[in-house]
Nucleic acid binder design. Structure first.
Lengths: 245, 245
DNA sequence: GGCAAGCAAATAATATGACAAATAAATTGG
DNA sequence: CCAATTTATTTGTCATATTATTTGCTTGCC
């Protein structure tokens, strides 16, 4: 059995199996999934558990289910991309560079403005939390700590410091995607892109309430990551062209 | 019975009743909801339907449910704000000016960058759709059409023109919130803030691929709306102070 | 008195079987 | 060929029984 699923109840298990299957493209949008009865048989569980799983996936926008028509995969535009589960399934299924770039394009918009808001609001407690994460990044550079977790904590804490529930809500979204993203960019470059120095610059700007500087520092940091990804995309394109020539 | 709910099945009805009740604060985060059995009695439906509703709300992050602990409302940070249902329940329950401002702060970040991306991508078909919406806004000024729908279509089509699934996914979010927002700002000002001229400037910039101009036009448009809201917030503050003095 | 192991009660989780309602597809009548 | 009707399939709902999990309590030991 799947290790990740042990410990969860049957409904949750089925939700994750089906969610992952849909995200991976095994069931295409517009396609029908097996009927309730088939799903019960295939997974060896009761109809109650199956139906509850179906309802959860419906709530996340992945499927619809109507009498006589059965269960169908929704168009991707309907999927609740900002649901941590859904995003996780998608990113784990196909963490393509294209999607990584698209994700970064959104992060750029959000984090740039979040930095500006944090600098405007100047919530001492919340900003101190950013400082702690920054300190942990420094320790990570000396090998004393996990660099990925510290990096994530830094970005999350900026969102928190906006004191805007919409930005705060994006934490789980950013976290999930950031985790995949960092893994990917590290694979490309080998070394951490997001260096301590860059992050410190951003922190200082927020700490001093320098709104424009904060926005600029955030933009600069992400532009660097974007350049890395787009460079890699170009490189692969050239490879493909060379192979077909 | 509630008009909005007729035509939906029992599970969906209960989802909306409970979702609205939670968003309205009738059940506070941390509080327990009635047990499954009680909910069945109260709403006169079976356990299956009740449980499926519970599962859907769980999938949206509003509640958790564990044996012996019962059903509990999650902290607001766990709520899936970007789920159109959840956002709708919240905005309809308490469309406070504060939340409107917070929402606008997010829109500023997203739409500014979306405009820039649309100008970069220059997808002729998608940009033409923005143009159609713009035309409808003009017709609306002459009373030939619903101004709100045209306005919404304009903004949605910009998101679409990014060709970035994350931005596109935000359409339903923006739409839900925009609808409440427009209703509110119109109540304050009486007249449409978002005039045709402003929107045309933004469209032209995107159409011509002028990235910086697009970003600026978007920012200017929203800064205006933000000023309106913050002015109203100040006015109310003064009112309160005067009343207590 | 404090602490650990075990016990009991409450609650959700799952299973099963039956029937109702909705709807897509086939059939029939014109 | 079209429209109305019927049929068959699939989900929606209900009722009841059983199982699993958790919390709080109790008991007995140190």
């Amino acid at each position: 059995m799947d290790r990740q699923q042990s410990g969860r109840n049957l409904t949750q298990q089925l939700v994750h199996v089906l969610g992952a299957a849909i995200a991976s493209g095994r069931y295409q949008p517009g396609d029908g999934l097996p009927s309730e009865a088939s799903l019960c048989d295939e997974h060896g569980i009761s109809r109650s558990a199956t139906r509850e799983a179906i309802k959860m996936l419906t709530a996340k926008g992945l499927i619809t289910s109507r009498p006589r028509q059965g269960i169908r995969v929704q168009q991707r535009a309907q999927w609740n991309l900002f649901d941590p589960d859904v995003l996780g399934w998608i990113l784990n299924a196909s963490p393509s560079l294209e999607m990584l770039r698209e994700f970064l394009q959104l992060r750029m918009a959000i984090e740039k403005e979040a930095a500006a808001l944090a600098a405007t609001d100047r919530d001492r407690v919340k900003i101190a939390a950013i400082g702690v994460a920054l300190q942990q990044m420094k320790e990570a550079e000396e090998g004393l700590r996990d660099p990925v977790e510290a990096d994530i904590a830094f970005h999350i804490n900026i969102l928190n410091a906006t004191n805007n529930p919409f930005y705060i809500q994006l934490s789980s979204f950013i976290e999930t995607a950031l985790r995949v993203s960092i893994r990917f960019t590290n694979r490309i470059k080998g070394v951490e892109t997001a260096s301590y120095a860059n992050h410190k610059k951003l922190f200082d700007a927020i700490d001093r309430g320098e709104i424009l500087a904060a926005r600029a520092a955030s933009a600069a940091m992400q532009a660097e990551a974007l350049a890395l990804i787009e460079g890699e995309l170009d490189r692969r394109e050239i490879e493909v062209n060379a192979a077909t020539a």
